[in-house]
Nucleic acid binder design. Structure first.
Lengths: 227, 227
DNA sequence: GGTAAATATTGACAAATGTCAATTTTCAGA
DNA sequence: TCTGAAAATTGACATTTGTCAATATTTACC
């Protein structure tokens, strides 16, 4: 079977653009423009969801703080992604925290407006259902990959995912700007182990790096390591 | 923060019971009674979803086959659980395979009937949305736990989850009947490593086992190991 | 451009986990 | 109840991964 990054990667981009235009127009009246500085938290795990976030610029990490100050990063959001609606739908607290990796801009739909709309609009609930279902499949794949692979393979898959996440809209070169600690938290390994594997990939000319910046130079070779 | 197994465990039980009675009545006309023998497959990953399954008796494992004949088990379904609707909703193939761990009985709703109903019933789509959202949170927690913990802790959490999965309806003693290979596939470790950790827990009188049967004898102590 | 603080890298070693090959125990069917 | 096959257990050892401490490099800020 052919390797498919698609299976492990998903963007909720354009979720709202698929709504009927009258509903979209109504929604837009309640939307607020906001921004947040690098390293600031957007929300904290255990807190009550305040609304839906649509990221328009920058990157956000979703993570869980674990005992021993280790941080597990579960997801990176990038421009176009919709965040935070899930726990709201099922009246739960946020299971994860969110923090900005860079300066970010986003649109915010307050909780009440969103829930009211959800009640009235079958198209929105069907849209969310479809999105959520698909997102779920991606997670399932990621989880089983994670459970069955060694650190090296996980790092390689993480590199490929990050390559998509950091892909610029103008089609320019992809540069992954992520510090080693966050990268290691994403892979679920120690920072030192990550550095060593990256060093090895660098020696094989599959990636290039300087400082915390990483660039993939041989994507095919990386993919080749996963089968 | 208090340990909550709830965070890592979820049953979709009674999903359909929450539907309005007229819609339920309509659905019941299309439902088929079926059964499947131990070790037989219910569906295979990559295949097209044929309908929705509601398990009424027995246990089903959802798993992914990995290279090197290793199997990663992602989820166990038990009586009351609803399976297989997710990939149907978003028009995808099954991301996982399903096989019976014991002789099972189930109700089957054919694809067309289910999708038709979904279109007509806002209550069903809202119900599914809520269920899916909650299920997702549980998965997120499991995944971050998985990524951040050692094999021993993962085994202990798996034991606690299995204790719920194997809880009999009549309130009798819980006996986990699962072979070591499947258990190891659930934890994401080698069968031998699993056996060693179980042996250790047995020596500490936290569990008892004979053959492949396992019984938890000191639940509190196990929970104590997770914080 | 210079400097202190943050971050990445490396080395040495310890601990955790996997693998392979016996051996023992359990289980299902005759 | 017996018996072969399947499954669980154990041992020895290799490999992977984590930890701690030191050092080199990069980055942010004046």
């Amino acid at each position: 079977m052919e390797f498919s990054l698609n299976k492990y990667y998903y963007k909720s981009e354009d979720l709202f653009k698929r709504l009927p235009s009258d509903e979209l127009a109504h929604l837009e009246k309640t939307i607020q423009q906001k921004s947040i500085r690098k390293k600031k938290m957007l929300f904290k795990q255990g807190s009550h969801p305040a609304g839906v976030y649509i990221l328009t610029k920058g990157k956000i990490k979703m993570y869980q703080s674990n005992p021993g100050d280790r941080e597990t990063i579960i997801y990176f959001y990038t421009a176009g992604d919709v965040m935070g609606y899930r726990p709201m739908i099922c009246q739960e607290a946020h299971p994860l925290s969110a923090a900005a990796l860079e300066d970010c801009s986003y649109l915010f739909i307050p909780r009440e407006a969103f829930l009211k709309m959800l009640k009235q609009s079958p198209s929105l609930s069907n849209l969310l259902l479809e999105t959520l279902g698909h997102e779920f499949s991606v997670w399932v794949s990621s989880m089983s990959f994670f459970a069955s692979q060694r650190v090296k393979e996980r790092i390689v898959l993480a590199l490929l995912k990050l390559h998509e996440i950091y892909r610029p809209e103008d089609g320019g070169k992809v540069i992954i700007r992520l510090n080693r600690t966050d990268f290691a938290g994403y892979v679920g390994t120690a920072k030192e182990t990550l550095v060593r594997v990256l060093g090895e990939l660098k020696k094989k000319n599959m990636i290039a790096s300087e400082g915390s910046k990483i660039r993939i130079t041989d994507r095919e070779a990386l993919i080749g390591m996963l089968r």
